[in-house]
Amino acid sequence: MEKRAIGGQGLTTSALGLGCMGMTGSYGPVDDAESTATIHRAIDLGVNMFDTADVYGPFTNERLLGRALAGRRDKVIVATKFGGAEMDDAGTVTGGANGRPEYVRASVERSLRNLNTDRIDLYYQHRVDPKVPVEETFGALGELVAAGKVRYLGISEARSGTIRRAHAAAPLSAVESEYSLFSRDVESNGVLETVRELGIGFVGYAPLGRGFLTGAVRSASALGPTDLRRIFPRFEEENLEANLALLRRIEKIAADLGVGGGRLALAWVLAQGEDIVPIPGTRRRTHLTENVEAATAPLDADTLAALAEAVSGGEIAGARTSPQDAGIER
């Protein structure tokens, strides 16, 4: 698979990463054996970046990834996150976003144990803590880089000004935010412009619109009772019905090309720049193969133009994040 440089600090990854969040819940039943097989198959197919976070589970996602990578650790880039919510060592949430230096130091040690590794390749501040200057958080993160516990740094869902301040305190390799045909905020809010000006890479999560762009979600009532998408306004029945009209436009273009809508949507993200690495999440090997095929199917100018005409970010019904998701800088 094609490799892409992420930022100017030396980090290089596969053009496509694998988001692991759904492997331990969030979108349906858990199957550790299939998730592990999916991780192994991803490595065989050339995917080398695996994205997790301490809050996924909590902790169970990092532990699953750590087990799956036993004997394969040196072949991959492990990306994890801290501070999305304050937690104790039992996994009990004790507060909101936490960027205090002492919490940073405790979190990295906990993630190293959970992942069964001696270093984290890419470590993100998961959500910005409005109570702590980002310079203090990234000062502590810079110390972890110097100590060899972390190789590269990132920040998730931050505004342009915060990205600049964090990067000045300790060089960032990556900014992670939601990005898809369904979520294009970063094109208009200055985030993409800022990371490109500063030479920072961009990692796009939910590039398939949390599964919406694959056509897998046609009705809110079809979502299981524990499905995380139930809390997102875009998946409320009225909004979902409006958004299906947009999906049908994408599916028409995909059908004319003889490919699936999800594959087309993922190829679109990959086409937005060689400094962008999407990290679609999947628990199943079949879906993984479909996603990897998108990485080898470049889109021509006519198809890109047709997609741009079919979907305008302003037409999407419903907010992309839940009201409970504190720490996203809007």
Rank of each mutant, 00 (worst) to 15 (best):
R4G: 08
A5L: 11
I6R: 02
I6N: 01
I6Y: 03
Q9P: 00
T13G: 04
S14Q: 06
A15D: 13
A15S: 15
L16E: 09
L18T: 07
C20G: 05
M21D: 00
T24I: 09
T24A: 08
G25F: 10
G28N: 01
P29F: 00
D31I: 02
D32M: 04
E34W: 09
S35G: 06
T38M: 05
T38S: 02
T38L: 03
H40S: 13
H40Y: 08
R41T: 15
I43M: 09
L45H: 10
F50S: 11
D51H: 03
T52R: 11
A53T: 08
G57P: 04
F59T: 03
F59Y: 13
F59G: 01
G66K: 00
R67E: 10
L69V: 03
R73L: 04
K75F: 00
K75M: 08
K75V: 01
K75Y: 00
G84A: 12
A85L: 15
M87S: 12
D88H: 02
D88T: 08
G91E: 04
T92Q: 12
G95S: 08
G96Q: 12
G96H: 12
A97S: 15
N98L: 07
N98Q: 07
R100G: 10
P101L: 12
Y103I: 12
V108N: 10
V108A: 08
V108R: 06
E109F: 02
R113M: 06
L115A: 01
T117I: 09
D118W: 01
I120F: 01
I120N: 00
D121A: 03
Y123Q: 14
R127I: 10
R127W: 07
V128R: 07
P130K: 04
V132A: 11
V132F: 11
V134M: 09
F138L: 06
L141C: 15
L144P: 01
A147W: 07
R151K: 13
I155G: 10
S156G: 01
A158W: 02
R159K: 15
R159E: 15
T162A: 05
R164S: 02
P171R: 13
L172C: 05
V175N: 00
S177T: 12
L181Q: 01
S183L: 11
R184S: 08
V186F: 06
E197Y: 09
I200W: 09
G201L: 01
G201Y: 04
G204I: 13
R210Q: 12
R210M: 07
G211C: 03
G215K: 03
F232T: 00
E241D: 10
E241C: 07
A242Y: 09
L244V: 02
L247I: 04
L247M: 03
I250D: 00
L257T: 05
G260W: 03
W268I: 06
W268H: 12
A271T: 08
G273M: 04
V277L: 14
I279V: 14
G281D: 03
R285H: 02
L288A: 11
T289C: 11
A294Q: 06
A294P: 03
T296P: 12
A297R: 15
L299H: 12
D300A: 07
T303R: 05
E309Y: 03
V311Y: 02
G313E: 11
G314A: 13
E315W: 14
A319I: 04
P323A: 11
Q324R: 14
